[in-house]
Computed example of a mutant assay.
Amino acid sequence: MKHSVYLSNKSLLAGVGFLLLIGLAGFLAPWLAPHDPLLINLSNRLAPPSWSYPFGTDHLGRCILSRVLFGSRISALFALFIVVCTFVISLPIGLFTGYVRGRGDHFFMRLIDGTLAIPDIVLTIAIVGVLGPGLIHMTLAIVLVRWAGYVRFIRSLVRNASQTDYILSARMSGNNHVRIMRRYILPKVFPPLLVYGALDTGKVVLLMAGLSFLGLGTQPPAPEWGVMLHDAVAYFQVAPHTIIFPGLAIMLFVSACQLIGEAQNKSQLIAGKRIA
């Protein structure tokens, strides 16, 4: 029944389809790209879309379509990598603080409150400013900033699940705490975490693009969507295609993540009502 709920959700299928399309385009970029994304041709700079250059060229004569295709490898894959790393760090902390509580819970919650008091973009810029610009430093900064929100969310899910009757029954049956968290609590909180992760992946792509746009993330000449936006700002009025196509790529990816997250949430609610 759960599978039929998911398969009948058109928003979920559309979001997954868009993400698969972006992932496939990035994987096949060496074969799909009509030109070298780093090849400079000043004689053909700011050329409008044509058969030879479907998305036109940028201020250095580089093929925008080729750069968008190769850029999906950096933007999409690193966003997914950041979310996975944040999950790996936050999940054991959230399980521990939500289930065991005590002094450890109090310490982590004060640390989380202090982290969440500062806006994500401000704290990320501060960390990257200390570490220096670059893709690796940007990735590390985003993980260091976003782990607190994940821990708070996981902790709230675990606290709610720990108060249910079947967890009390599991304790009375002689199960140890590790077994209860792994076998009974984790499967209960994992579906909402998928929704949270899908929604957050789109936010991470926007954050990465924003940092690269400010010159703090991926550095030129790497074909990354935020870098392309940064390079195109000065030429937007005379060559709007230079900023439109990378902007559309970001919008498509973020929209796909939103569709998946909202559709998963809706499907879980429908499945829960049917079970009830």
Rank of each mutant, 00 (worst) to 15 (best):
H137W: 02
L144A: 14
I154P: 04
L157S: 07
F153L: 14
G102Q: 01
I154G: 04
G134V: 00
V130S: 12
I127T: 08
V158W: 03
T124Q: 07
L131I: 00
V145R: 13
I142R: 06
L111R: 09
L135P: 01
T164L: 13
V130A: 12
A161T: 15
Y99R: 07
L131E: 01
D120S: 15
R146M: 08
I125P: 07
M109Q: 11
T115N: 14
R146Y: 12
G114I: 14
C85I: 10
R171S: 02
V143C: 13
T164A: 12
T97V: 12
L135D: 00
L168P: 01
L135R: 03
P92A: 05
L168S: 12
V100P: 07
G94W: 00
R110W: 03
P119W: 07
F153W: 04
R171E: 06
R103N: 03
V130C: 03
L168F: 10
R155S: 04
V88W: 10
V145W: 07
G149M: 03
M109L: 06
F87M: 13
T139K: 02
G149F: 02
A117V: 03
S156C: 02
L168D: 11
V130F: 11
Y150H: 10
L131A: 06
I125H: 09
P133E: 04
T124M: 14
Q163A: 15
L157Y: 01
V100G: 04
T164M: 14
T124S: 12
I125Y: 10
S162Y: 05
A141D: 04
R159H: 05
M109P: 00
H137A: 11
I127E: 07
G94Y: 01
D105Y: 06
C85Y: 06
Q163D: 13
V100I: 15
F108K: 08
T97G: 04
F87A: 12
V130T: 12
V151F: 00
P133M: 06
T86Q: 13
Q163M: 14
L140F: 05
I121W: 08
G102C: 06
I167Q: 09
F87N: 08
G98T: 07
T115M: 15
G114D: 04
N160Q: 14
Y99D: 07
V130M: 10
M138C: 08
R103I: 04
S156L: 07
S90Y: 09
I89D: 08
G114R: 11
I118T: 14
V151G: 03
C85T: 10
T115F: 14
I127Y: 05
I127D: 05
A161V: 06
F87G: 06
V158M: 05
I121M: 14
G104Y: 08
I93R: 03
I136F: 11
V143S: 10
D120T: 12
Y150P: 03
R152S: 00
M138W: 01
A141E: 04
L116C: 06
T139E: 00
F96I: 11
T139Q: 05
G102Y: 02
R103F: 09
I142F: 03
Q163N: 13
L140A: 11
L144D: 07
D120H: 11
I167F: 05
M138E: 03
P119K: 09
I127V: 14
H106M: 14
G149T: 01
G134H: 02
R101T: 09
L91D: 05
G98P: 09
Q163F: 12
D113F: 02
